[in-house]
Simulated scan of single mutants.
Amino acid sequence: MRVIGLTGGIASGKSTVTDILKKRFNYIVIDADQLARQAVELGSPGLDKVAAVFGQKVLNENGELNRSLMGELIANDQQTRKILNSIVHPEIKKLYDQQIQYYESVGVPAVFFDCPLLFESNLQNTVDETILVVADKEIRIRRIMERDQLSREQAIKRIEMQMSDEEKIALADTIIENNGSLDDLLIMINIYFSNRKLWTD
């Protein structure tokens, strides 16, 4: 079974590519963000470990993780962020491995791993190949401004907080440009599939 890592910066259109893979091509997509939420959901070992380290203050009244408070804590303290990651990342890895093992056991030929921080987390060597979705900076700025109702300066700041496309391009196996319409994007994806037969690998 092949595992293809899919990534892209904010407003690149990665989520649109994910939807196309799932809905039009019927591929299995493992969502890293969903795994991260699952790793600390109510009743999970991950949440128990987070509460044991940071205290009950990081939980809501219903016992779930107070994500806004946790977000504030890690935003203001790099050491706190490292501690949280050291707890959560192994739990995410367990969930990821469980899914990979399951899909492999039932004979799925290929799955995609949707991971926004694939390169930032140095996970490119854990997959068989990588796809990077990119778009011109000005297009991304406009998308962020329209989608999130932010100023141009705020949109630029969000982009610049992430690893640059130039750095990611140097690490990626395949680049999918998403500067045009949905039809243009579908053409790019079809070109990718025309060069590969994932179901035979």
Rank of each mutant, 00 (worst) to 15 (best):
K23R: 10
K23C: 15
K23P: 13
R24K: 15
F25G: 04
N26G: 14
I28T: 03
I28H: 06
V29W: 00
V29I: 06
V29E: 06
V29N: 07
I30K: 11
D31C: 02
A36H: 05
A36T: 04
Q38D: 11
A39F: 00
A39Q: 00
V40E: 03
V40C: 09
E41M: 15
E41P: 09
L42T: 15
L42G: 08
G43T: 03
G43D: 04
G43M: 02
S44G: 07
L47Y: 00
D48W: 13
K49R: 15
K49I: 15
K49L: 11
K49A: 14
V50Y: 03
V50K: 06
A52T: 08
A52L: 15
A52N: 14
V53H: 15
G55V: 04
Q56D: 12
K57L: 04
K57M: 05
V58N: 00
V58M: 03
V58E: 00
L59W: 05
L59C: 08
L59G: 00
L59Q: 03
L59Y: 00
E61T: 13
G63Q: 01
L65G: 01
R67W: 00
S68A: 15
L69N: 03
M70Q: 01
G71A: 02
G71R: 01
G71M: 02
E72T: 13
L73D: 00
L73M: 07
L73P: 02
I74E: 04
I74A: 02
A75S: 07
N76A: 13
N76W: 04
N76I: 10
D77N: 04
Q78I: 15
Q79T: 14
Q79E: 13
Q79P: 14
Q79R: 13
T80V: 11
T80S: 09
K82P: 10
I83P: 03
I83Y: 13
L84W: 03
L84E: 01
N85H: 13
N85L: 09
S86Y: 01
S86W: 02
I87W: 01
P90H: 10
E91L: 03
E91Q: 05
E91Y: 12
I92W: 06
I92E: 06
I92R: 02
K93C: 11
K93F: 15
K93D: 14
K93R: 14
K94S: 14
L95W: 10
Y96N: 04
Q98Y: 12
Q98I: 13
Q99L: 07
I100L: 11
Y102L: 11
Y102C: 07
Y102A: 11
Y103L: 09
Y103E: 06
S105C: 10
G107F: 13
V108I: 11
P109W: 10
P109N: 08
A110S: 11
A110G: 12
V111W: 09
V111G: 07
F112R: 05
F112I: 07
L117K: 07
L118E: 04
F119R: 03
S121L: 12
L123F: 11
Q124D: 11
N125F: 14
T126K: 12
V127I: 09
V127T: 06
V127A: 01
D128R: 13
D128Q: 09
D128T: 08
E129G: 05
E129V: 07
E129T: 06
T130I: 06
T130V: 08
I131K: 04
L132N: 01
L132D: 03
V133F: 06
V134P: 07
